[in-house]
Each structure stands twice: as C-alpha cells, then as structure tokens.
C-alpha cells in the first residue's frame, strides 16, 4: 500500500507537468486549428531565462516575473513571425513553420548556453516532507497546486469573462466572430501570449525536478501531445485529465510491468485511444466546432 501511494503521488506530479504543457497545445489549437510543435521549446526557453536571471543575482520572484514577461514577448514574436504571415494558408505550412521555429529555438539556446544541463533551485528551501510512508517532493506539491489553480482560473476566464468569451467565439468561428466586431487577430495574439506564458510556467516549475536542458521541452511535449489526444484535442478539461492519466499510467506500468518500457505504456494508451476513441475522453465537444 505504501508503494502504491508513493507511485500515485509521483504519477500525479509528473502528470500535472504533462497537463500544463498540454493546456498550451489545446489553447493554440482551439484558436488557430494548428498544433504548435514549438510548445515544448517554450518551456525550455523559460527555464533558461529563469536560470540566467537567478545567476545574475536577482531574487527568485523577480526572476519568475521577468521570465514570464519574456515568454509573453516570445508569444508576440512567435505570432507575428510564425503564424501571422501564414494565417491564410492551410494548416500544413503553419505546422511546418512551428517545427522550424522549434529547431531554431533549441539551437539558439544551444549556441548561447552550451549543451551542459543547468541547475535551477526550487521555490522552497525544504526539498520535501515525509508523510507517514510517503515522501512528498515539495516541487511536485507546488506543481500539483498550480495545476489545480490553473484549471479553476481557466474555467473562470473562459466562461465568466468577456475576453474569455471573445476568445471562445474566435476559436469556434472566426468569420462570425469578426462580423460581431471581435478583432480576430488580437484574440489570436492573446492566445499565443497566454500559451507561451503557460508553457513557460510549466518549464519553470519542472526545471528544479528535471534540470534545465535543451531536450527538456521536447521530451515533455511528446507526452503532453499524447495527453492532448487522450483527453480530446481542443478540450481544456481533457488536456488536464489526459495529462494526469498518462503520468499515473506510465508510473504504475513502470513499477509493476517493466521499467525500460515506461514510455511504451504512454504510447500504447495513445494508440488505443486513436483506434477505439479517436475523439478522446471529452471528444463530443470538439464536434460542436464543426
């Protein structure tokens, strides 16, 4: 039983990381109908920004604010440089452009910072607490807490605020939205900014656990992408549930069946969903967009 609890905690912790990145995928997909393959690199860039600020001797909270502001700026640049020029084309050139941007981002960081992984201290002085037989890593506790808060915030933002409703309207039907006087390009700009900040937040939160490296973004993004499909592409709740489920499944699969095939379990679940329920857990709501 102790073993199960310990595995459950780490499973949920790592699942929450996937969920955060998956959320960024979903938001951009809803707004633009393309998958942003540079979403993982957003996490990586934010983590490096954080490392740079902390190394400059800035306080942790200020570094955090600067890193997220930097991500907002990156969201603007990304929108103007990658999405906007291709917005009237089909989805394919846009997707390829995001892949290109992802290669550019990771190699730029490699050129500036070198290949050695970096260390980022966690938010808390204490590494964790022993609760009976289970060890709770403080950074994972923080990640889980932030994920819960973000779920609540997203619900409030998209369902209760005018801006959120405008964003939803844009994602459902751009022509109709612009007829109603909503500036579509502004809404898409806001979506990119929000996604970049979300991706950055995930990167900064996970950096103390997984270290800061060039590959950190792509490894998480791959799982987050799977989580998005499992949850139902285009669904916010689906991304969260998909991410958490994936984290728990791969942790238990590794512990009770096979460690080397840990990643395999995640992708087996993905394949099962693609075959038997391609619309994902919360799939129905995607249909209403059509």
């Amino acid at each position: 039983m102790d073993l199960v609890l310990q595995l459950l905690f780490t499973g949920i912790g790592i699942g929450a990381v996937y969920a955060l990145v998956a959320l960024g995928f979903v938001l951009i997909f809803r707004a633009t109908n393309v998958v942003n393959f540079a979403q993982g690199e957003f996490s990586m860039v934010a983590a490096y920004l954080m490392v740079v600020c902390v190394e400059l001797g800035l306080p942790y909270w200020l570094s955090f604010v600067i890193a997220l502001a930097g991500m907002a700026l990156l969201g603007v640049i990304f929108n103007l440089g990658v999405y906007y020029p291709l917005r009237h084309r089909t989805y394919l050139p846009v997707i390829i452009a995001t892949i290109g941007a992802s290669i550019l981002l990771s190699n730029s960081v490699l050129a500036i910072y070198g290949p050695q992984p970096q260390v980022l201290q966690g938010w808390f002085e204490t590494p964790g607490i022993q609760l009976g037989p289970v060890y709770l890593d403080s950074q994972y506790l923080l990640i889980i807490g932030v994920t819960i808060l973000l779920v609540l915030f997203n619900f409030w933002f998209f369902e209760k605020t005018l801006l959120g409703k405008k964003l939803q309207a844009t994602s459902q039907d751009k022509e109709m939205a612009s007829l109603l006087g909503i500036s579509v390009s502004t809404m898409i700009m806001i979506t990119f900014i929000y996604s970049a900040v979300l991706g950055g937040l995930a990167g900064i939160l996970v950096a103390p656990v997984l270290f800061v490296s060039i590959q950190m973004g792509s490894t998480i993004a791959l799982k987050a992408f799977a989580a998005t499909i499992i949850g139902g592409f285009g669904d916010v709740a689906g991304a969260i549930v998909g991410g958490l489920a994936l984290g728990v499944i791969e942790t238990f699969g590794a512990a009770y069946i096979s460690v080397p095939y840990k990643d395999g379990f995640a992708f087996l679940v993905l394949i099962a969903f693609l075959v038997f329920r391609p619309q994902g857990i919360f799939g129905e709501r995607v249909a209403e967009k059509a």
Partner: peptide, 9 residues
C-alpha cells in the same frame, strides 16, 4: 530508458 523524467519505480 534514457531521458526518463521519473525514477521512483
């Protein structure tokens, strides 16, 4: 497997 994010198991 390389690049495992978690080693609890």
């Amino acid at each position: 497997a390389n690049q495992s994010q978690d080693f609890t198991p």
